[in-house]
Design a protein around this nucleic acid. Structure first.
Lengths: 145, 145
DNA sequence: CTGACTGCAAAATCTTTGCAAAGAC
DNA sequence: GTCTTTGCAAAGATTTTGCAGTCAG
């Protein structure tokens, strides 16, 4: 796992390369995702940031804008919950898929080589140029059953 | 594939069993999904219905309510496009997953036994009681590459 | 008849945008 | 200084809800 200072450098470079500016808000959001390491909605990030850093002004719009930026740059990725919005996580980790508990919302990550391989084959079979893929297993986690 | 009259009977029975009423609007939406057999957003269904049956009054709210009903009853299923909403299709067919072209929006269905099996195993491994699962392969279709 | 259903418009969500002020470089 | 970014509030987009009239059983 990459260290935070390194990640920060990477982010700063990315900003510089695109003539974007490094701001306190952008750093806070990146840091939040790094330190908390889970899946969060924009709203959650906004609320928790305000709570943790009452002295720094962050608007919800900035959270959205920054998350989009992080996602476009490949630093973060999102997982969609339909009408209920999206949750974001840092995309530093190896690719993985998700098990989602429909009762408590818990998200468990997993990776399965067989599935990955089959996906490649399926894309090839349909002459699809695969750019991304997601897999969600919805159900009840151990606790909620 | 089930015939339409049979599907309609099934739907009517479902309504009766739940003390719900069989209405022209509900029938039209079911029929639309049956005859068009693809994936549609509520908005699309609403617009096309008004176009095809100018004499029948259907409100967008009814489309949403009916689609939810069909989904809850297992007659239809939806596939989520994040912020861009959901698309619905009849769920009569055998379970399948989707290849989605990010350029033209085309949706191709596929089924892969290996992936299905692995999903079961993964759920079991995490003590998850799987109720549903979705897999989307995003990419560029043959035409759009 | 009775209770469910409908369309309408208003409300609710979630997300994006316009703009003037603030901040990075 | 210049040009990007920000927060705010307003606007958008999509979906849901309240309600009085309508309709199925």
């Amino acid at each position: 796992m990459i260290s935070y200072p390194l990640l920060l450098e990477q982010f700063k470079k990315l900003l510089k390369d695109n003539t974007l500016k490094f701001t306190k808000q952008r750093e806070l959001i990146l840091k939040f995702l790094y330190e908390n390491g889970g899946h969060y909605t924009p709203e959650e990030i906004y609320t928790l940031l305000k709570q943790d850093y009452p002295d720094v002004k962050v608007g919800i719009a900035t959270v959205y804008r920054t998350l989009s930026l992080l996602e476009e740059s490949g630093i973060a990725s999102s997982i969609s919950f339909g009408v209920q919005g999206k949750k974001y996580e840092l995309g530093l980790k190896k690719h993985h898929d998700h098990l989602i508990c429909s009762a408590c919302g818990e998200i468990i990550e997993f990776f399965d080589e067989t599935i990955e391989e089959r996906q490649e084959e399926i894309a090839k079979k349909f002459n699809f140029k695969m750019t991304d893929h997601t897999m969600k297993i919805i159900g009840l986690c151990e606790k909620c059953q």
